[in-house]
Write a protein that binds this DNA or RNA. Structure first.
Lengths: 100, 100
DNA sequence: TAAACATATTAGAAAATTCGAATATGCTAA
DNA sequence: TTAGCATATTCGAATTTTCTAATATGTTTA
């Protein structure tokens, strides 16, 4: 069996482990969308959204393409989609404590 | 449909988004295990392992119980198991970039 | 070409994470 | 009780993350 690369897996999880990036990815996977729209949906600033997109782009979770004046983003990887499904699905049954 | 709590989901992912914690959790889910063993398996210091276990305990991912001189840990939540299955399974097919 | 718009990048401050060192706590055995 | 082992907690330094402000880049339209 292959050696598990925990660093690599942690990097992938880290890219998702931020509420704004999570919302961005969750939005993108419903359909390609431009940065401007992501700003409105997340309520975060232009720079902030752009930097989060940069993180997601760098790890290969999303792809971007230009559409005239706009830059649109699409979900690049199945794993991201699987993790989101998994965590959303579980959500209601979760007993994990996230606040004290 | 229920409003998605991205902060909560990010907290859960953040607890997993560290190579040592990931290895700890991945080890625990194969069977209950004491801290000393986790130190050996991860190669991290006593304090380091204990602090990571604290993070996992605080969010409710693991439980601990005393066994004489030792403290043993067990996996507490199904979601953690699901996410690990998901990411390990995908691993070989992954095209995500995690280094530059 | 100039102005306007959309996005990316850079810089720097604040906050959070991580880890080793030191110390505290709890159990067991002598 | 005392010593010894196992674990937890605290502290502080180094690193990383996150965000705003400012600036740069690329596209479109007048």
């Amino acid at each position: 069996m292959a050696m598990i690369d925990y660093q690599k897996e942690a990097d992938i999880l880290k890219a998702l482990a931020n509420p704004i990036r999570l919302k961005i990815v969750d939005t993108i996977r419903k359909g390609d969308i431009c940065v401007k729209s992501l700003e409105e949906i997340t309520g975060a600033s232009q720079s902030c959204v752009s930097q989060h997109l940069s993180v997601l782009r760098n790890i290969g979770m999303v792809n971007s393409y230009r559409d005239g004046n706009l830059v649109c983003y699409s979900l690049n990887h199945r794993l991201t989609d699987k993790i989101l499904n998994c965590i959303h699905e579980e959500y209601d049954h979760s007993t994990l404590k996230t606040e004290e």
